[in-house]
């Protein structure tokens, strides 16, 4: 039972990290209609900038503003210099341009920081584990990630449902032309949404630093999974992204944790393990395929 609860927490932690990325991506997609492949690069930039500052100053806290600022500024620059030119273009042009951006960012990071992954330690206060239930120890840092992720989710909910900006965002994701026709300064809104998405991606990147490896290419690994989340949740829907992230995180973790064991009941050892791993890698794609076959527009299409 404790093992199951621990795996559930693991799934949630993976889920909220995905949510931080997916929220931005789905907004950018839903409101501006832009497929932004460079979202993963912004996650990487957040991780690099934050980790670098944390390593030089020795303070984990100082890394947070650095990572967030670097990511948000990169986001604004990308929007201003590249994406702005592509709003009226085909999705395919956006794909090609942002693919070019991935190459540029990866190489630039390599040239600035070298090819070696960066080191980052855990903040002292968050380095231990806590006993949540008798026998259930859980790393404090991961709990902190879950907490931050949930806070961001609540904040986004309030922002979208309770503020004027949120109203525009909601209007923009359902009917882009209408908002423009109403005379709202759509450009400013676009830049703001892009910056917000980048900020969240940078936060996700910086928080992942102590757990994963801060290295070139870390963005592409998670980008595809993030797109899966966005599509399962329904493009443009932050609520959908939230539920889809958790669903995906928990499914992925559960498959990895329990599938090989289940297969071992019916097959011989090593083959079961290899097959189990194969299927659990496919798991999230299988999940997406099934969801789309039943609900072609995703789970929460049309609601923000």
């Amino acid at each position: 039972m404790t093992l199951f609860l621990e795996q559930l927490l693991n799934g949630m932690q993976l889920g909220v990290t995905l949510f931080l990325l997916a929220a931005g991506l789905t907004l950018i997609f839903g409101i501006m209609g832009v497929i932004n492949l460079a979202h993963g690069s912004i996650y990487m930039i957040g991780a690099y900038a934050g980790t670098y500052v944390a390593a030089t100053t020795g303070s984990f806290l100082l890394g947070i503003p650095a990572g967030l600022a670097a990511a948000a500024l990169t986001g604004i620059a990308v929007e201003f210099l590249v994406v702005r030119q592509l709003y009226d273009r085909d999705h395919l042009d956006q794909v090609l341009a942002t693919f070019g951006l991935i190459l540029i960012f990866n190489q630039a990071i390599t040239m600035i920081f070298g090819r070696q992954p960066l080191f980052v330690g855990l903040p002292e206060a968050l380095s231990g584990s806590v006993e949540l239930l008798p026998g259930l120890f859980y790393p404090l840092y991961r709990l902190a990630i879950i907490a931050v992720g949930l806070l961001v989710a609540v904040g986004l909910y309030l922002l979208i449902n309770r503020t004027r900006v949120g109203m525009l965002v909601r209007a923009g994701s359902t009917n882009r032309e209408m908002v423009r026709a109403l005379g709202v300064d759509i450009r400013l809104l676009y830049t703001a949404v892009f910056a917000l998405g980048a900020l969240l991606a940078g936060l996700a990147g910086y928080m992942a630093g102590p757990i994963l490896a801060v290295q070139v290419g870390m963005g592409e690994q998670i980008l595809i999974t993030t797109f899966v989340v966005v599509v399962i949740g329904g493009v443009g829907s932050v609520k959908g992204a939230f539920y889809a992230s958790l669903l995906l995180g928990v499914t992925d973790t559960a498959l990895r944790a329990y599938l090989p064991g289940l297969l071992r009941q019916v097959m011989v050892g090593p083959e079961a393990d290899a097959l189990g791993a194969g299927i659990s890698s496919m798991g999230i794609y299988l999940l997406m395929a099934i969801v789309l076959l039943i609900r072609p527009k995703g789970l929460f299409a049309g609601s923000t």
């Binding site: 693991n10 932690q13 690994q221 791993a277 659990s280 890698s281």
Partner: peptide, 21 residues
């Protein structure tokens, strides 16, 4: 115990729990 992880996997929390068990 024998676990094959995924090549694009970066989070090993599920595996850690199994090792501990």
């Amino acid at each position: 115990g024998e676990i094959y992880t995924s090549l694009d996997q970066t989070d090993f929390a599920a595996e850690m729990a199994q090792i501990r068990a």
